[in-house]
Design a protein around this nucleic acid. Structure first.
Length: 299
DNA sequence: ACCACATCCTGTTAGC
DNA sequence: TGCTAACAGGATGTGG
């Protein structure tokens, strides 16, 4: 499931190769993927044909493929979306919903679950996505985060998944960030102290930057724009590790379902009541191997 | 304004 | 072994 690091990894590649490249033909554009768009599939096809890419932006988990006409194609990969540049001769993946012919190569979007989205952005306009602060930007500070969370009655887990507060986090990185900052996922969002908000803000940055260094987490579907999986899976501390020993304290990782979404956490490192910290990460004798050291440095 | 829940969708897996 | 049902979740829409 592509979250900020995965989408940014794709963006960086596309930003290198797309500028100046013309779209010769729109081979395929599935109308079912066009959602909340001022233009429909046929109109988008018309506008895209012959257009030339200028640059590529990311907003939260959205990609903006800008055109020299100052228009843009907005893409979201949903859960299972793959956006890949490959040979025009390469066999089409099943569930390919967008195929742009760029000379000898194609830009292709395949998305089995069709949770993704294709939309048009008119010239001079910015898409109204209602997204919150970018967690890797300078604006994302402890006080900003605490302000965003203040007064909120929902669980911190739900609040961090809310894209209108912080843009780009998904289930994996929320769980990882809460683990690193030792905050229980069901804690009331508005109840975080400034100290906790600071730890959380740092954890979010760290988790995202670490994943970015590893070109994203390939848990099920994600591949980068060249079709390669990311390497970050092995560095996850809690997501997908239910029942496995916590890398910090060996307590089995727990999983609970909150609002239909699973939350992975360590019951000992992330106590509900927010217990007093009694040990530091430095005190942990790490040893190499699958169940060895913490994947992240100390908070 | 905020929140909880249903909806979309299909490949994979758990369970009978 | 083979089938069915549950499960996974990002964004959006609805009702409270």
């Amino acid at each position: 499931m592509p979250e900020l690091p995965e989408v940014e990894t794709i963006r960086r590649y596309l930003a290198e190769m797309l500028p100046g490249v013309p779209i010769e033909r729109v081979e395929h554009l599935d109308p079912r993927m066009v959602k909340h768009s001022p233009l429909n599939a046929g109109q988008i096809t018309e506008r895209l044909t012959g257009a030339v890419f200028s640059h590529v932006d990311r907003i939260g988990k959205f990609l903006l493929l800008r055109l020299q006409s100052d228009e843009a194609l907005l893409l979201h990969l949903g859960m299972s979306g793959r956006l890949v540049v490959e040979s025009h001769q390469a066999p089409l993946q099943p569930h390919t919903h967008l195929q742009l012919a760029l000379g000898d190569r194609d830009l292709r979007l395949a998305d089995p679950r069709r949770f993704g989205r294709i939309a048009w952005v008119a010239a001079g306009e910015e898409p109204a996505l209602g997204l919150g602060v970018e967690p890797l930007s300078r604006r994302f500070t402890a006080t900003v985060l605490q302000d965003l969370l203040s007064g909120r009655k929902s669980a911190i887990k739900s609040a961090l998944l809310n894209q209108s507060l912080v843009a780009g986090l998904g289930n994996i990185y929320v769980d990882e960030s809460l683990f690193l900052s030792r905050i229980h996922p069901s804690r009331l969002a508005g109840s975080l102290s400034l100290v906790e908000a600071r730890a959380l803000a740092r954890a979010i940055r760290r988790v995202l930057e670490l994943s970015l260094e590893h070109r994203g987490t390939s848990f099920s579907d994600y591949v980068d724009a060249l079709g390669h999986p990311g390497d970050n899976l092995q560095y996850l501390n809690v997501y997908g590790r239910e029942g496995k020993p916590c890398r910090r304290c060996r307590t089995p990782i727990a999983r609970i379902v909150m609002g239909g979404r699973s939350s992975h956490f360590c019951p000992r490192c992330q106590p509900v009541a927010g217990g007093v910290q009694t040990r530091t990460d430095e005190s942990i004798s790490g040893k190499a191997g699958d169940e060895g050291d913490l994947s992240h440095a100390e908070i």
